[in-house]
Nucleic acid binder design. Structure first.
Lengths: 122, 122
DNA sequence: GAATCTTCCCTAGCGATCATAGGCATAAAT
DNA sequence: ATTTATGCCTATGATCGCTAGGGAAGATTC
C-alpha cells in the first residue's frame, strides 16, 4: 500500500492481503469480485480491497500454488474466474495466521496492550 | 523487509516499525542501539530490528518532525545520537496506534478471531 | 435497438518499507 | 597491540499495495 502520510482508512496492512484472500476462500471457491466484497463486508467496511491490489495478489497466490483457478459463470451470468484453496494454500493460511497472531501479540506487548495506552489525541 | 517466503520469525510487520520506535521513546529519549534492544526485549524476542531498518527509520521520523535528536554520550561512554519524541511525534503515535487497533480488529474479524480458527498445521 | 450501466478481468508504473550487506570510528578488554 | 563491542551509516534489491489506466460482455433504460 502506498501509505500516504497518514494512511487513509481502508488501506490494508502490508503483507496481510494474501492471508485475507486465503481465509476468504476457506468458505468455498469464489471469484475476484466476490472476494473483495466478502473482505469488505466481513471487516465491517474497515478494509477496502482495490482491484489493482486484488488481481496481482490472486495471480501471485496462484503462482505459488496456494490457489487454483478455473473459468466459470458468475451469479450475475458473467464470465468469471473462480479461485479455490489448494492443500498447500490451506497450510500456508495456517502458517500465515500463526505468524499474524505472534506478530500482533508482540506488537501489542510494546504498545502496552490494554494496560498502558499512550496519550489520547488532543 | 524482504519477506522471504515464508517470512522468518522476527521480521517486522510492514508499516509498524515507525510506531514501535515512537512508542519506545515515550519512556524517554534513547539512542538507536537502546531502541533496538528495548523493542526486542519488550516483545519477548518475537521481534528483531535490523540496523539497516532502524537507522533509515530514525532519519525518516526525524525528517517528518516526529523525532528530534542530539549527540551525546552513551552508558558505555561512546558517542551516540539520542532521539526524543516531539509533540508532533506524540500525536502521530496516538494516530498510528488508533489505526493499528482498527486494522487488527478488522483483520481478526476476517480470521474469525477466537471462535473459528482454520486448521492447525499438520 | 442504441446507449448506458454494471460486472468482471487485467496491466504498467510508482512510492514506501524493510532486509541484506557492506563500511567506519572509537572505547574497552585481552 | 590486537581484538571485541558499541554505535552510526548507506546503497541496493525485493515485495507489496495503490493509482490509473484499459477492455469485454451482460443487463438496463430509453
Amino acid at each position: 500500500m502506498v501509505l500516504k502520510r497518514p494512511p487513509e482508512a481502508g488501506e490494508i496492512l502490508q503483507g496481510t492481503l494474501d492471508m485475507l484472500i486465503l481465509r476468504t476462500l476457506v468458505m468455498g471457491p469464489a471469484h475476484g469480485h466476490t472476494i473483495t466484497q466478502v473482505i469488505e463486508h466481513t471487516s465491517e467496511n474497515a478494509l477496502e480491497v482495490e482491484q489493482g491490489s486484488l488481481y496481482p495478489a490472486l495471480h501471485r497466490l496462484e503462482d505459488r500454488g496456494w490457489l487454483a483457478s478455473e473459468w466459470g459463470v458468475s451469479e450475475n451470468n458473467r464470465k468469471a474466474k473462480f479461485y479455490r484453496l489448494t492443500p498447500k494454500g490451506r497450510r500456508e493460511l495456517a502458517a500465515a495466521t500463526g505468524r499474524w497472531r505472534k506478530m500482533t501479540r508482540a506488537i501489542d506487548l510494546i504498545l502496552g496492550a490494554e494496560t498502558e495506552k499512550p496519550e489520547v489525541l488532543p
